[in-house]
Design a protein around this nucleic acid. Structure first.
Length: 470
RNA sequence: CGGGGAGUAGCGCAGCUUGGUUAGCGCGCCUGCUUUGGGAGCAGGAGGCCGGGAGUUCGAAUCUCCCCUCCCCGACCA
């Protein structure tokens, strides 16, 4: 008797599968205003893990957290021409407050280059004040015409770093340091998503940037997702906000700035990068719950032993949950924990207890092993390590298998229907980008032949990575 | 914002074409009993201004108009 699937199968309807998983894994709901989302406790626990682990890396890179206002004078946005042009279509503007029309409208921040630039201009006097390395965790608003929970919402949560440097080279180096040591490292080693890191083409650049670099991940349907960006802003914002300093020869100089961010979009990337038809699959280093100890039967001895096992695991540093809800059937509980993507299940029933064993099951591949009851901790620890490594390797293989090297734009259009294509950037050009656009495809990023991030998009012999994207 | 589809119980849907007793079904939820090694079974029960507003009519879930929201496909983005 085949039961109906828990989720719409990915192969049948991927967007529907995504919707199903948001509901059934209790990750998020739509908010009452179009384009907004309610992040439910389990979804927020995932975000908190991301925050904590990204924040630690940001601090290790020398930046300090601060907080800048939600409301920005409209005039600030207008000081940088490209910036305001890029953002004006998606601004939410407050025209009335305190029961009156405001003399100058304020915008709800779509990003904070401008307010932070204003403060930097005040704070920086001397070359001794540089570099100034700031970060803030905040919500931002970009009014979206076609919202999708976690991927594109009108309000989202993120981290935005803003730095000022004495030289272009220093700014460029720091933007790259964040890209690699914070973002790429977190995505690869924690999220187990083997991102491709490169430069955006001029047409895909952040509004006001001189160079935009990106981490691109491949989703389960072969589409690309921009998971994080790091920008070199040149002296554009320094000029607009008078961020200047006296150098060691006593000459006034304009600073060089950067900005960089990752958002709740990463939650969507995590779902679509690893999820399968049974639900979420969370990499152990990120999972809010790494192991769940399940009492298979309503049996006093079993439950007592489960409590001990959970306590042992927790004490060993494994984020553990105890499931002794024996009024719900075993099958149902297993299904629910699978939906939530908990990496390891430790299942104990009367049979296991009698045999002095416990069953340890991996979420990622469904494999199970019997572990001695008095030696569960090392077995679980080993399983968590292997899952982390295997998930990354599996995702890498999938990405490689679905990335096709081609020689022409036409071939790229064909190849990127189901995955990514790579081709020489000099075969694309502006006309090529337009042709790709007609097929809902874009150059996701430019990389060197060896996969490294180029110093500039003007380098010769760059490779373009082409795909459809979210 | 353009094209297409859809809003009826927490979720998924039927009813609408051809207006007419008390608006149904599956899942979920509550209570009880029996169960529990991969989405349990039986019995009883709670839960609806039929997306919102205006209209047509003796009478509207059903017909008309406006608005809102969601999903899919395009143009914009973390």
């Amino acid at each position: 008797m085949a039961k109906p699937p828990v989720l719409t199968p990915q192969s049948e309807d991927f967007p529907r599968w995504y919707q199903d998983i948001l509901n059934k894994a209790e990750l998020a709901d739509n908010g009452p205003v179009r384009g907004t989302m309610v992040i439910r406790p389990y979804g927020y626990a995932i975000w908190e893990q991301m925050q904590a682990q990204v924040d630690a890396r940001i601090k290790a890179a020398g930046a300090s957290n601060a907080y800048f206002p939600l409301f920005i004078p409209e005039s600030y946005l207008k000081r940088e021409a490209e910036h305001v042009e890029g953002f004006s279509p998606e601004l939410a503007v407050v025209t009335h407050a305190g029961g009156k029309q405001l003399e100058e409208p304020v915008v709800v921040r779509p990003t904070s280059e401008t307010v932070i630039g204003e403060s930097m201009g005040k704070w920086i006097q001397s070359w001794r004040d540089l570099p100034l390395l700031l970060n803030q965790w905040a919500n931002v608003v970009r009014w979206e015409l076609r919202p999708r929970v976690f991927l594109r919402t009108s309000e989202f949560l993120w981290q935005e770093g803003h730095t000022a440097h004495a030289t272009e080279a220093d700014a460029a180096a720091y933007a790259r340091q964040i890209l690699h040591e914070v973002y790429e490292d977190f995505m690869v080693n924690v999220l187990a998503l083997p991102v491709v890191v490169g430069c955006k083409t001029p047409s895909e650049r952040f509004a006001g940037a001189t160079n935009t670099m990106t981490c691109e991940a491949m989703m389960g349907d072969g589409k690309a997702l921009q998971m994080g960006t790091s920008h070199e802003l040149g002296q554009n914002f320094a000029r607009a906000f008078n961020i200047n300093y006296l150098d060691d020869t006593g000459t006034q100089q304009l600073a060089w700035t950067t900005s960089w961010g990752v958002s709740t979009r990463m939650v969507g990337g995590l779902i679509m990068g690893h999820g399968d038809d049974a639900g979420l699959r969370l990499p152990p280093r990120l999972a809010p719950v790494q192991a769940v100890v399940i009492a298979v039967r309503d049996d006093e001895a079993v439950i007592a032993r489960c409590r001990e096992l959970a306590a042992e695991l927790e004490a060993s540093g494994v984020r553990t949950r105890l499931d002794v809800d024996t009024s719900t059937s075993m099958g149902r509980r297993v299904t629910d924990w699978e939906l939530k993507g908990v990496p390891v299940r430790v299942e104990l029933g009367p049979r296991d207890l009698a045999a002095g064993e416990v069953t340890v099951t991996r979420r990622d591949d469904g494999s199970r092993v019997a572990a001695p009851l008095d030696g569960v901790v090392p077995v679980v620890a080993e399983a968590l390590d292997r899952i982390q490594a295997d998930m990354l390797e599996r995702a890498r293989q999938t990405r490689v298998a679905r990335t096709v090297p081609v020689a022409t734009v036409d071939e790229a259009i064909e190849a990127a229907a189901t995955g990514w294509a790579t081709l020489p950037w000099d075969r694309v050009g502006a006309e090529g980008e337009t042709a790709l656009g007609a097929h809902a495809m874009t150059v996701r990023c430019l990389i060197r032949a060896d996969g490294a991030v180029p110093d500039s998009v003007d380098e010769p012999d760059l490779t373009a990575v082409v795909g459809r994207s979210y």
